[in-house]
Design a protein around this nucleic acid. Structure first.
Length: 581
RNA sequence: GCACCCGUAGCUCAGCUGGAUAGAGCGCUGCCCUCCGAAGGCAGAGGUCUCGCGUUCGAAUCGCGACGGGUGCACCA
């Protein structure tokens, strides 16, 4: 049950009645009519701007519309009182039992609360992580992984048909570098002394890959020409790296539906057919680009290339798809890859990329618009940097010094739940500070703790309730009399719980899972506040001796809050805890 | 030089896509444990929402222009 949605429907229905009565013209656009919680609770439970946004459209005074609309709204059994304020706000106070109705709906079907069908089962493809298969995932990848995964869950929650996808960049030159690096480790496993030249990967994580190769092929490749082993080693190394990456992702609780190989695009005509699709639309031509202004590049010289006319779709310059030597640029397989997504009938595509790929956004959107004839939208979410701290001091990362922090180290150290939650406490386009020590602190300052603490406290009360003989299953709670919930702190919590569906809706529409994290913090705060009020006023304690009826009402309230915390954390991929340790 | 992102309390950040007196945490001041978990809670102080112009009933939010910070800029991914 979405109270805000219901009240909005009520307002629209009332406006329609006014149209029938000729109090309003018939051709009105109601899109801007909003229902929201007022900032100041003295103004009631909800406010609408309907009269103001319709004033100019209908050529009537806001206050005239408001006064008539108020009369209509007043007839609803949901509405206790209506008042007009300021330039034409309509403040609505709901009848006390509305909150009880909401709580009852939650308890009757806890898993459904907050879910919706705004996605209408449309197919969405969300591509994230997509790290090069040349080594383990590090902290930077982690944020993108968590964001993408939470966004996928969020969209699933509101009724989209979501595919989680990972693009394996296994077609470029960096894979040869990987293979040669593994070869060195392989020689090392055979007892040879090795040196890592510039442009090879000296990381320890390849030692076991070299050993595994030795176990598999013995000395077959020792001191042999590169031509003999390169192809086989490429695949062997990629497989090993992808296994490593998948294990890391699993440690974070991430399961990708589709791994898509860049290499599978080569030699199969798939790049060619994507490019010829563009060519058929007159968007491919041979040309020479101007040198970038303001940036002096001594190596720059005019060269003829095959270009995609991305400027037709808002890009700054046209982009090369084929180099002057005839090879594809890195952009060409990306075009082919997105073309492949289009053939899989997605209604909407989302790419989650590091912020350093910002310059890539316009050309990719241009390509998708062109390939789909504007039928499919691509949204690109850029993820800003993570700055690591250790107890307040910046933690310098360096591959060379061995202080390079991997996803795995992060998860081993602070756990998947804390990692995920903290990564989502900032919006994606703002940099994030991640402090190893502070994410584990058990204080209010640490949002993951604060939210979990609220959930644990509720579970604690539930355990106590069972001990004193109360039946606290959801069905019993849903059947209890909730009219005794009248204190302002109780209403505040109930109202916050009632806001969940609306908040999920907003978060999903804006593709911003961090809103869920902030909401949960506020919800936890309202709960802790009520808890403490019970310390001073015994009548507000959740368990009332010799008064099971009141106890049931209060338990219903906090159980509903726990349901919402659990659902919200579920979207973020975090497991709610039953007790703090 | 151009493009994208950002600029909100001393610090770190939210701000529901245009609504009423701009919020939270930290820090600062002062309170609250005979009690379902004080790992908490309450109250106070703290603001020219970087600046200017515009759009309108109404702007932190939208547009334009400054200023400041970050990122990226053919033939590497």
């Amino acid at each position: 049950m979405n109270v805000f949605g219901e009240i909005r429907n009520l307002i629209i229905a009332s406006l329609n009645e006014m149209q029938v009565l000729a109090d309003l013209p018939n051709d009105l656009n109601f899109d801007l009519v909003a229902v929201e919680p007022p900032r100041n609770s003295n103004h009631g439970d909800m406010a609408t701007n309907a009269a103001m946004v319709l004033a100019s459209q209908s050529r009537k005074k806001p206050l005239d519309i408001a006064s008539k609309l108020a009369v209509h709204l007043g007839h609803s059994p949901l509405v206790e009182a209506v008042e007009i304020a300021g330039p034409g706000f309509i403040n609505i106070r709901l009848t006390a039992n509305v909150w009880g109705t909401v709580l009852r709906a939650i308890l009757e079907d806890p898993l459904a609360y907050g879910r919706s069908n705004i996605g209408a089962a449309k197919k969405v493809n969300i591509e994230y992580v997509s790290a090069n298969p040349t080594g383990p995932l590090h902290v930077g990848h982690t944020r993108g992984a968590v964001f993408g995964d939470a966004l996928a869950s969020l969209l699933d929650f509101v009724g989209f048909n979501v595919t989680r996808e990972y693009y394996i960049n296994d077609g470029g030159a960096q894979v040869d570098v990987l293979a040669r690096s593994v070869y060195l480790r392989y020689l090392e496993a055979h007892g040879q002394k090795i040196i890592f030249a510039d442009g090879t990967y000296p990381g320890d994580y390849l030692i076991e890959v070299g050993q595994a190769l030795k176990d598999k092929v013995g000395d077959a490749f020792v001191d042999k020409d590169e031509a003999m082993w390169l192809a086989e080693l490429r695949q062997f190394s990629i497989d090993a790296m992808m296994k490593l990456i998948k294990t890391d992702l699993l440690a974070l609780g991430i399961k990708i539906d589709v791994y898509f190989s860049e290499k599978s695009l080569y030699g199969t005509g798939r790049i060619e057919s994507a490019i010829s699709n563009l060519r058929d639309k007159g968007l491919i031509y041979e040309g020479t680009l101007d040198p970038p202004k303001g940036k002096t590049d001594v190596d720059w010289e005019p060269r003829k290339q095959t270009l995609f006319k991305s400027t037709n779709y808002g890009d700054d310059v046209d982009r090369p798809v084929q180099k002057s030597d005839g090879n594809w640029t890195y952009f060409a397989p990306d075009v082919a890859y997105h073309f492949d997504k289009l053939t899989r009938d997605f209604n909407h595509l989302i790419d989650v990329l590091g912020a350093d790929h910002g310059g890539y956004v316009k050309r990719m959107k241009a390509a998708v618009t062109a390939l789909s004839d504007g039928q499919t939208s691509l949204d690109i979410k850029l993820i800003q940097l993570v700055r690591l701290y250790k107890n307040g001091v910046p933690f310098k990362m360096s591959k060379r010094a061995g202080t390079f922090v991997t996803l795995r180290e992060l998860v081993d150290r602070v756990g998947a739940d804390a990692t995920r939650f903290v990564m989502l406490t900032r919006k994606n386009d703002a940099p994030l500070d991640f402090d190893f020590d502070k994410v584990l602190e058990q204080t209010k300052e640490n949002p993951i703790f604060y939210v979990q603490y609220a959930h644990a406290r509720i579970c604690s009360v539930m355990r106590k309730a069972t001990e004193i003989g109360l039946a606290i299953d959801d069905a019993t709670l849903a059947g209890s009399d909730l009219d005794s919930l009248i204190d302002s702190a109780e209403i505040t919590l109930a109202a916050k719980v009632a806001e969940f569906p609306r908040l999920v809706d907003i978060a999903a529409r804006s593709n911003e899972p961090h809103r869920i994290a902030f909401y949960l913090y506020e919800l936890a705060s309202d709960f802790h506040s009520l808890w403490n009020k019970g310390q001073e006023q015994p009548r507000l304690r959740f368990l009332q001796e010799n008064n099971p009826s009141t106890s049931y009402a209060k338990i219903s309230l906090i159980r509903s809050a726990a349901v919402v915390i659990s659902a919200g954390l579920g979207i973020l991929g975090v497991t709610p805890v039953q007790e703090m340790r």
